[in-house]
Lab assay of single mutants.
Amino acid sequence: KNAAQIVDEALNQGITLFVADNRLQYETSRDNIPEELLNEWKYYRQDLIDFLQQLD
């Protein structure tokens, strides 16, 4: 998997990933985040941060 796929997957589930103060953050109206997504975000944290910062 790559960062773009993970960001896309999150968006499809109503979750927006973004970077604030060099930390990976998310916004969602969901009550909870599936644990497998959280684990994936932790595992790919630096890739996601790098990818999202390139988009800014």
Rank of each mutant, 00 (worst) to 15 (best):
K1G: 03
K1W: 04
K1P: 04
N2E: 08
N2P: 11
N2Q: 11
N2G: 10
N2Y: 08
N2F: 08
N2D: 09
A3W: 04
A3H: 02
A3D: 01
A3M: 12
A3V: 10
A3K: 01
A3N: 02
A3E: 02
A3Y: 03
A3L: 06
A4P: 05
A4I: 05
A4S: 10
A4F: 06
A4H: 12
A4V: 05
A4Q: 12
Q5G: 05
Q5K: 08
Q5Y: 05
Q5M: 09
Q5D: 08
Q5E: 07
Q5I: 07
Q5P: 01
Q5V: 07
I6F: 02
I6T: 01
I6V: 07
I6A: 01
I6S: 01
I6H: 01
I6M: 06
I6Q: 01
I6C: 03
V7P: 00
V7C: 06
V7G: 01
V7I: 11
V7Y: 14
V7A: 03
D8A: 15
D8L: 15
D8F: 14
D8K: 15
D8Y: 15
D8W: 15
E9F: 07
E9N: 06
E9L: 05
E9T: 05
E9G: 03
E9V: 04
E9P: 00
E9A: 06
A10Y: 03
A10C: 04
A10N: 02
A10V: 02
A10D: 00
A10L: 03
A10W: 04
L11C: 14
L11H: 10
L11M: 10
L11V: 07
L11T: 08
L11N: 09
L11A: 11
N12P: 02
N12R: 15
N12D: 10
N12Q: 15
Q13I: 10
Q13C: 09
Q13E: 09
Q13F: 14
Q13A: 13
Q13G: 06
G14F: 05
G14E: 04
G14Q: 05
G14S: 04
I15W: 03
I15M: 02
I15Y: 09
I15N: 01
I15F: 09
I15R: 00
T16A: 07
T16N: 08
T16L: 13
T16G: 04
T16R: 15
T16Q: 09
L17N: 00
L17W: 02
L17R: 00
L17Q: 01
L17P: 00
F18L: 07
F18E: 03
F18T: 09
F18M: 06
F18I: 07
F18R: 07
F18V: 06
F18Q: 05
V19T: 05
V19P: 03
V19C: 06
V19I: 08
V19Y: 14
V19L: 10
V19S: 03
V19E: 03
V19D: 01
V19W: 14
V19F: 14
V19Q: 03
V19M: 05
V19G: 02
A20H: 13
A20D: 11
A20E: 14
A20L: 12
A20M: 11
A20Q: 14
A20R: 13
A20F: 12
A20P: 02
D21L: 05
D21S: 05
D21Q: 07
D21H: 08
N22W: 05
N22D: 11
N22R: 06
N22F: 06
N22T: 05
N22M: 08
N22Y: 07
N22S: 09
N22I: 07
R23D: 15
R23V: 14
R23C: 15
R23H: 11
R23Q: 15
R23F: 09
R23A: 13
R23N: 14
R23K: 13
R23S: 13
R23Y: 11
L24I: 07
L24G: 00
L24P: 02
L24S: 00
L24Q: 00
L24W: 01
L24V: 06
Q25W: 15
Q25T: 06
Q25D: 06
Y26A: 05
Y26I: 06
Y26G: 02
Y26M: 05
Y26L: 03
Y26D: 00
Y26P: 01
Y26F: 09
Y26R: 01
Y26H: 05
E27V: 14
T28H: 06
T28P: 12
T28Q: 03
T28D: 02
T28W: 04
S29W: 11
S29K: 12
S29T: 13
S29H: 11
S29G: 08
S29F: 10
S29Y: 11
R30Q: 08
R30N: 10
R30Y: 06
R30M: 11
R30L: 13
R30H: 09
R30G: 09
D31Y: 08
D31L: 10
D31A: 11
D31S: 11
D31G: 11
N32D: 13
N32K: 12
N32G: 08
N32H: 14
N32C: 11
N32A: 11
N32M: 12
N32Y: 14
I33L: 08
I33A: 03
I33D: 01
I33T: 03
I33F: 04
P34N: 06
P34W: 03
P34C: 05
P34Y: 03
P34R: 05
E35L: 13
E35Q: 12
E35C: 09
E35M: 11
E36G: 08
E36S: 12
E36M: 07
E36H: 11
E36Y: 13
E36Q: 11
E36W: 09
L37A: 03
L37S: 03
L37G: 01
L37R: 03
L37F: 07
L38A: 05
L38M: 10
L38P: 02
L38I: 11
L38T: 06
L38K: 08
N39T: 09
N39Q: 12
N39Y: 10
N39S: 10
E40V: 07
E40G: 03
E40K: 07
E40Q: 08
E40S: 05
W41V: 04
W41M: 07
W41G: 01
W41S: 01
W41I: 13
W41P: 00
W41A: 01
W41T: 03
W41D: 00
W41K: 00
K42L: 14
K42D: 15
K42E: 15
K42F: 14
K42H: 14
K42G: 09
K42N: 15
K42I: 13
Y43A: 12
Y43V: 13
Y43Q: 13
Y43I: 12
Y43G: 05
Y43T: 12
Y43C: 07
Y43E: 14
Y43K: 12
Y44I: 03
Y44D: 02
Y44K: 04
Y44F: 08
Y44A: 05
R45N: 14
R45M: 15
R45D: 09
R45H: 13
R45Q: 15
R45I: 14
Q46I: 08
Q46M: 08
Q46A: 10
Q46N: 09
Q46D: 11
Q46V: 09
D47M: 14
D47Q: 14
D47V: 14
D47K: 10
D47Y: 08
D47G: 07
L48M: 03
L48Q: 00
L48S: 00
I49K: 04
I49A: 02
D50H: 09
D50R: 13
D50M: 10
D50F: 10
D50V: 10
D50Y: 10
D50K: 12
D50T: 10
F51M: 03
F51K: 01
F51V: 02
F51C: 02
F51W: 10
L52E: 00
L52N: 00
L52C: 01
L52Q: 00
Q53K: 13
Q53I: 13
Q54D: 09
Q54T: 10
Q54C: 10
Q54N: 07
Q54V: 09
Q54I: 11
Q54H: 12
L55K: 13
L55I: 12
L55M: 11
L55P: 10
L55Y: 12
L55N: 12
L55S: 10
L55G: 11
D56Y: 07
D56P: 11
D56L: 11
D56Q: 15
D56C: 12
D56H: 13
